[in-house]
Structures are given as C-alpha cells and as structure tokens.
C-alpha cells in the first residue's frame, strides 16, 4: 500500500505515464454502457446473443471510453466496467460460494440482484484481471483496476452460510487479496478497492479496516478506497485508518460539506475529490467545480488531490457523462493554470 504513483511503473513492455503531478484527474469506476451493449446484455440473458458477440461489444465500448478519456485529458483512466452490472453481484457471480437473488431496490428506480452466500467463498478464477489487462493494452496511461471490497461484499449480500459477518468478510478479503496480487503482477499501478458500505456501521469499522488490510497487505501498487453516501460524522476519524494510499470520497452530492469534517483531522492520505453529482441530470458548471476544488485546496496540497466524479457514472446517459467529465477536466485545467501548477 505504499505505491508512489509517480507514473513510472511498467506493465508489460510499455512505459506508462501520468501527464500531471497535481490535481490528477481520474474516474471512480463505471461509465454508461452504449445502447447497443445494453440491448445485447438483455438479449444475451435470454440466450439470443452469443457470449463472443457480447464480449466483442464490451471491448468495443471499453476502447471508445479509453479513447474519450485520453482525448479529454484524464490522467488515470478507468476501463468503465462494460462487462459489469452491479458492483457486488458481478464479483459474486465469479466467486465460488454465491447464489444470486432477484432484483432488490437500492434507491429510486435502481435495483441490484443481491448475492446470497450459500457456501465457502473462494476465488476459483480471475475476477477483474482480464478486463483490466485488455483496457491497459489500449493506452499508455495507467488504467485503474477496480475491485469491490470485502466489507461491502459482505454487507450487500444475504448470508446463509457463515456463522457471523466477520467470518464472511475475512473470507472475502482473502479471495480479493489473491486477485489484487495478480493485478499487481500483471502491472496494475493503481488498485482501487471500493468500500461504500464502510460508513454503514460505526461499530464495525475496525472489521472493515482489518479486512481491507488483508486485501492490500504486501501490495506495492498505489491503493485507493472509494467510500460514498454515508453518515460521515459517524465514521470519522476512524475512516482515515483504512489501509490504502488514497481515500476517494463523494463531495458534490453533499455540497462539499464533507470537506469541513475532513479538515478537522490531520490528513496524510491522498484524497479523491468527487466533484460531479452522478445522480443528477444537470451538468455542473466549470465555475462550481472550480469552487469545490479551491475549497479542498484550502487545506490539501494539490499533489495529494485527485479529482473525479462522486461515484460511477453508469446511471447517466453517455452524453451526460461525457459532458460532466469534460466540465471536470476543464475546471481542473483552469485551476492548474490559475495556480501555476504542473
């Protein structure tokens, strides 16, 4: 967990580079799937589209998103999760020990198929490795590899097998650790372990920290944890002890109120600054994003701030997501210019 993130790592034979040293821009995970892919996923479920054809469409969409992120100047792109539906269900489908239930609502009109733990959890095949490898082959910028963390996987599943939440969470941590090691060996410089559920139960924050520590132990890659939509006052400052290099947090959703909480504590980690509300159709203005960034820079050094959306953008249309990301990058460019940053 002590990666330098200087952009000098070498997956395969190519040298990867990050264009900027300050206010680096990145994604959080998901990006909208193009309509053709959405339709193909639906038809594939009914057996009307072959898996090879689905994979071809996923690769095509991934490449389009990588090219877009390069074109607008994202420093650390994401592959966009074209092959994933829900962030917990996707991993549950690949791990041994899970069954998948029918859809359960998470908010508004959004649903996910909630995993059910029915046996011992084991990693029997790669989880995120192949999709990351394919995306990384498309660009000279380091693509962030993204996993769903053990505490969140536990919290978002029904458990009909393990005696308690701790046993399940730690079993998941071991499985995810294996995946993280393989991602690093394959050249991943940034490994993000999403833990949105970590803010759920203050009384279990120590378990979440322990489990994440098992995932990141021994890693040299730059590690990130994304946490969102919680009651922050309940889990700070313990949240700052998550064993990763960077905490990626939603800020725009709460009108940057979280910054006022964060500034009360000494911060040694990098902060991923969410500046785009991913649940609103409204496109932010460059000025409001700049205001958010300046508020963060009141107490955070620019080399420790990564700028990104609040969360994955899959709920937006392609058009909305692109416009939001363009606004984000433009705001960062203007702040860099105004402050004379590299």
């Amino acid at each position: 967990m002590t990666g330098s993130a200087n952009g000098g790592g070498r997956p395969g034979s190519r040298k990867l580079g990050i264009p900027h040293r300050t206010l680096r821009t990145t994604g959080v995970g998901s990006l909208p799937k193009p309509p053709a892919l959405l339709e193909a996923r639906e038809r594939a479920r009914r057996g009307e589209v072959a898996q090879e054809e689905l994979r071809r469409l996923e690769r095509e969409a991934t490449e389009a998103w990588i090219r877009f992120q390069e074109a607008i100047g994202i420093d650390v792109p994401v592959h966009g999760e074209m092959e994933r539906g829900d962030m917990a269900t996707y991993f549950a489908e690949l791990l041994d020990g899970f069954a998948i239930s029918g859809p359960v609502r998470s908010y508004g009109n959004r649903y996910y198929r909630k995993p059910i733990v029915v046996g011992p959890v084991r990693r029997v095949r790669p989880l995120a490795l192949e999709s990351w490898r394919e995306a990384q082959a498309l660009t000279d910028r380091p693509v962030k590899a993204i996993l769903t963390g053990p505490y969140t996987m536990c919290d978002w599943s029904f458990d009909e097998y393990y005696p308690d939440r701790r046993s399940l969470t730690l079993a998941l941590a071991e499985a995810l650790h294996e995946e993280a090691l393989e991602l690093e060996a394959a050249g991943a410089q940034f490994i993000q372990i999403d833990e949105p559920a970590v803010s759920t139960r203050p009384e279990e924050i120590d378990l979440a920290i322990e489990a994440l520590g098992r995932v990141t132990r021994g890693l040299k890659a730059h590690t990130v944890s994304h946490v969102c939509y919680g009651h922050w006052e309940e889990v700070l400052p313990a949240l700052l002890e998550l064993p990763v290099d960077q905490l990626d947090l939603e800020m725009a959703n709460g009108d940057y109120a979280l910054l006022d909480l964060l500034r009360r504590y000494p911060l040694s980690k990098e902060i991923g600054l969410g500046v785009i509300d991913v649940h609103s159709h409204r496109i932010e203005s460059v000025e409001e994003v700049k205001r958010g960034i300046y508020r963060a820079l009141e107490f955070l050094p620019p080399e420790r701030v990564y700028v990104d959306p609040d969360c994955g953008l899959k709920t937006r249309t392609e058009e909305e997501a692109k416009r939001k990301l363009e606004v984000m990058v433009r705001a960062v460019q203007e702040v860099r210019r105004e402050l004379g940053l590299a």
Binding site: S106, Y107, Y229, H231
Partner: peptide, 13 residues
C-alpha cells in the same frame, strides 16, 4: 437533497 444511506442498509434516501 443528496442521496444518503438509510441506516445500515444498502438503500439510499
């Protein structure tokens, strides 16, 4: 306003 987790559930209001 913004989305917030509904107590200890993977559900947001």
């Amino acid at each position: 306003g913004g989305l917030v987790r509904y107590y200890d559930n993977n559900f947001y209001y």
